[in-house]
Amino acid sequence: MQPINHVAGKAIPFGRKNVDTDVIIPAHWLKTITREGLGQGAFEAVKKEPGNVFTDPAYADAPIIIAGDNFGCGSSREHAAWALLDMGVTCVIAPSFSDIFSGNAFKNGILTVALPQEAIDRLMEVAQEQPIDIDLDTQTVTTPFQDRFPFDIDPFRKHCLLNGLDEVGLTMAQGDAIATYEDKARSTLPFLAKTPASVD
């Protein structure tokens, strides 16, 4: 995973609320067996709308998307995060995110920044003209107009994002604790600890 500490650049002022994962990447793009190339399908339906921000050359290769409430609702498909990454987006700013989406985004090194609607309104305005700057270390979003919006982030997520840490590797290092749990479960919860396919 790529470490991420600073995202700066043009932001796509999308602004829409309840952007579901079907909008981010329609189901017919889910048939891949690798992670690459999904950027092409990202926001496919929106891209067909006249005057949309995704085909507007002003926002080409922008690393940031600004959206409304409840971004990433709908299915658990991680393809939504891969599609954003593949289109070069590493930060989404919105008033709120669906739990599953923000988890998937984090695991793929995408920063999700939750800010109040007033801040979103202001950033939507700024993004039309100017770049936006997100600093993970100080947890602030700033603009060239001296706007300054602090944001919260889970300290563990922050640590992993800043250092590009892979969760699977981190957890595998706790193999002993897992084995201890499994030993205990074999006696306390034997009916959950195995299936007929288990070798005792």
Binding site: G103, N104, K107, G175, I178
Partner: peptide
């Protein structure tokens, strides 16, 4: 429900 990174996490750990 979990995403694919979590599927990998559960498979491995």
């Amino acid at each position: 429900g979990i995403g694919t990174s979590e599927v990998e996490h559960v498979l491995a750990t």
